[in-house]
Amino acid sequence: MSTAIAVFHGAFGRVCLYSMDRRMAPHGHREGHLIFHVDGPPGQLVVDDRPWPISAGQGVAVSPWQGHFYAPITTDVPTLALVLYIRPGWFVEAARQASASMRFGRVGIEVTDHLMRLVTETAHVMLDPDMDDPLLEDRLCALTQAAFDQSWQWTERGSAFTGPNRAGRDYRIRKAVRFLQNSIGEDFELNAVAREVGLSRPHFYKLFREQVGLTPNLFLNALRMEQAIDRLAGTQSAVADIGYDLGFSSQASFSRFFISNGVVPPSAYRRCVQSVELQ
């Protein structure tokens, strides 16, 4: 079973040290995502249906709303991984460079000595409960920046233009996104949402996936995970209540959902969370 060793929340987003041996469900999220190997056997991340190694020399970078899931190579021994969920809004302020948005140029990141040092130092700080590290945020920024820059090297577009090349969103998809955002925890069918915005089911799924990056189901899951994490970390609400409010019929089904989308059970996540508020 995968376990959380440490979870830090801060202005940067979230950074987690996970011991992982479970396959996860396909999912995506609003944050930019970086995963680095720290210890144990190599693992892999499947991004857009293609596996990428997470090993001593290789990390992965996942752009916001890009679908992916963790798949262990062996389940005998867990892989210790440093997992970053970087808030694009924080990065755009911290990075001090003219690139908007955290879209990475490619998934595979070569773990250079510089990156390795940053990963090791971060993991070290997270493993030591007594260590209060004023440089954590700087280090996460450097880590993200280095991975980001590298991901755009030797790509056709280079780093000159790094914003997402989004086409304008169809008004029906915009309407659906707004509906989903405002209806978390309510009982509705996605087919009804498709009808409501005036699209056939297949067309709705295809267009949604094209324009948002994830299918409507996975998008909805991402919104539920966001709320779950916010409430686990920021409130005293009982885990079962959080699950019910998000539309789960039992704590067990909420737990299963949370594990398959967020590595560990909600109660374990809550136990590990530390808030890092830097001056």
């Binding site: 809004g89 990065f91 755009v92 302020e93």
Partner: peptide, 13 residues
């Protein structure tokens, strides 16, 4: 803020 497509990230921030 000055960047292409910065609106989406910078407005909520």
């Amino acid at each position: 803020h000055f960047a292409e497509r910065v609106l989406e990230d910078a407005l909520p921030e």
